[in-house]
């Protein structure tokens, strides 16, 4: 991992954090806002796992465990949110 790539990753993470904060400040609710929030979270989490943790060049098993954890957690949050909408 080159240092330039690490710097770019930081810039993307900070931008995505600003966007997530913006969703909260706007008081945005509903499916579209939450899908945006969850996609931003997935992008951030995946970058941390692959670039900061250094899992990009390693066995698929380890990348799969970390990215899979992220997908599982975000899917459960999405499911719970959907249940909350219809309750």
């Amino acid at each position: 991992m080159t240092t330039r790539k690490l710097d770019i990753t930081l810039a993307v993470l900070l931008t995505a954090t600003l966007a997530t904060w913006g969703i909260g400040e706007a008081g945005a609710a509903g499916v579209a806002a939450m899908v945006s929030m969850l996609v931003l979270t997935f992008v951030k989490g995946r970058l941390i796992a692959l670039d900061y943790m250094g899992l990009r060049p390693v066995r698929l098993f380890w990348r799969g465990m970390l990215v899979g954890w992220l997908v599982l957690v975000l899917s459960l949050i999405a499911l719970a949110y959907w249940i909350g909408l219809s309750a």
Partner: peptide, 16 residues
């Protein structure tokens, strides 16, 4: 620790 907070922040502070 960072990865966990990346999920915790939107879940607790933003999701509504």
């Amino acid at each position: 620790v960072d990865l966990v907070w990346i999920v915790l922040f939107p879940l607790v502070y933003v999701m509504r």
